[in-house]
Design a protein around this nucleic acid. Sequence first.
DNA 1: CTTGAAGCTACAGTCACTGTAGATCGTATG
DNA 2: CATACGATCTACAGTGACTGTAGCTTCAAG
Lengths: 140, 140
Amino acid sequence: MQGHSIGALSKRTGVKVTTIRYYEGRGLLPDPGRTDRGQRRYGDAEMDRLSFIAHARQLGFDLDAVAELIALQETPFDAHGEAHLIATSRLAEVRDRIERLRRLEGELSRIVSACDGHPDGQPCRVLNALADHGACEHEH
Amino acid sequence: MQGHSIGALSKRTGVKVTTIRYYEGRGLLPDPGRTDRGQRRYGDAEMDRLSFIAHARQLGFDLDAVAELIALQETPFDAHGEAHLIATSRLAEVRDRIERLRRLEGELSRIVSACDGHPDGQPCRVLNALADHGACEHEH
DNA sequence: CTTGAAGCTACAGTCACTGTAGATCGTATG
DNA sequence: CATACGATCTACAGTGACTGTAGCTTCAAG
């Protein structure tokens, strides 16, 4: 029987077998064909679809957004504006997350370095620094 | 009766009422005193503890890590090395997350800008760009 | 033919909350 | 003092995106 097994699909796309079945349950992947004994068999179209999902997930789109994008792909009239909008707002989110993480990095590295090379036998400052929010360079 | 109500605590720390009760259930906050009618009343020590938790959470520590840090605070002998270790590994995680988000930002902005100013009536490239993992500048 | 890997379904568990229902409590105003 | 309204209580279900488990059946290699 031709077609990829679920395990083959998993290996090729890097998406776990259980996750593939989960996507199917969520309606992100169509019901695949089955062998006469009930095992799933996939064609290349399903492979592409799964790769698309995996890629979008790695870009931080949640499953609802992915479903929207798939729907846009399937009715491509005027899809441009909406897809653009979705991608743009995702970009803004990502930039915001980076900004917040950068502040966080600064604070953590300040905490850690307050500890490096402090004299033996002196109390540690890490716990104090964590407790002392007022010492943060930025509010959050 | 003196002491802060759960709502007052919530306002002062920015932690939601339901979340405070959740932390109590998780053992991160001690059972507070109650009024004779059963409402929680908190003292300043509990306020400080809650602020500590909130702060550590904002720094990306998960609740188990927070519980560890609290335990370290309460038995401060030799706490230094462990707290330092926890904070250091958190810092490494944060740096890694920033790095991955930066790649993601690059890819998303490439996708979005591929669309800006494209001639009217031309098909949108956003969907293609999302589908085409091979065009990514970095693998992920 | 046997064995072990891969597949199947169905459901519970994860994390850190959030939301809901339905009851009780506290307090400000008429 | 009565009433109304917000705050609080418990207990439990739901979220997102999976992951893990139990207990089967099926497939492919030796």
